[in-house]
Design a protein around this nucleic acid. Structure first.
Length: 154
DNA sequence: GCCAACGTTGGC
DNA sequence: GCCAACGTTGGC
């Protein structure tokens, strides 16, 4: 099983939205590196650090899990969608979605500053300057550490 | 609001 | 195929 980090702006869709809905489709990824990970390596049962970006504070808000492997992103084919891509075709969908389910919400956000300050998390992608990928893998040890930090708060 | 990082686009 | 311009992300 792999571990991942996925970024969402809480003003758009937060961990509380995911808890309310139980599960959701992860749509609108329009970056090839992120897409390739979703398409090729994300599998049902994988665990996900749910990260709030552009937030106060930004940081890891909880844990989700992959509940459906990649499938063509329907929004890419929908002209009415914000995520419409005129170069995507039904036979060559180009972009993919996965579905994720709610697992847990931490008592408090684990802020990015706390991740950066933790020696055990040295080298973690999200702590690097200029890290922009909205979906990327996380080492199992880093995942466990962040989850422990999240549970220890509050 | 600023700006660094960096992926994508398009002229050549 | 190079690379400058442009657009987006996202921390601060």
């Amino acid at each position: 099983m792999r571990h991942w980090l996925m970024k969402s702006e809480p003003d758009v869709y937060s961990i509380d939205d995911l808890r309310r809905d139980g599960r959701t489709s992860w749509e609108g990824v329009r970056n090839y590196t992120a897409r390739n990970w979703m398409r090729d390596d994300m599998k049902e049962g994988d665990l996900v650090l749910y990260y709030h970006s552009n937030a106060e504070p930004s940081g890891v808000a909880g844990v989700a899990k992959v509940v459906r492997d990649a499938y063509p992103d329907p929004h890419a084919l929908d002209p009415a969608s914000h995520y419409y891509d005129p170069t995507a075709k039904p036979d060559v969908p180009r972009w993919v979605s996965v579905d994720i389910g709610f697992v847990e919400r931490f008592p408090a956000i684990v802020p990015l500053a706390a991740l950066k300050a933790e020696p055990d998390l040295a080298g973690m992608e999200v702590t690097k300057r200029g890290s922009r990928l909205s979906v990327h893998p996380v080492d199992a040890a880093h995942f466990e550490k962040v989850r422990a930090m999240g549970r220890a708060q509050g």
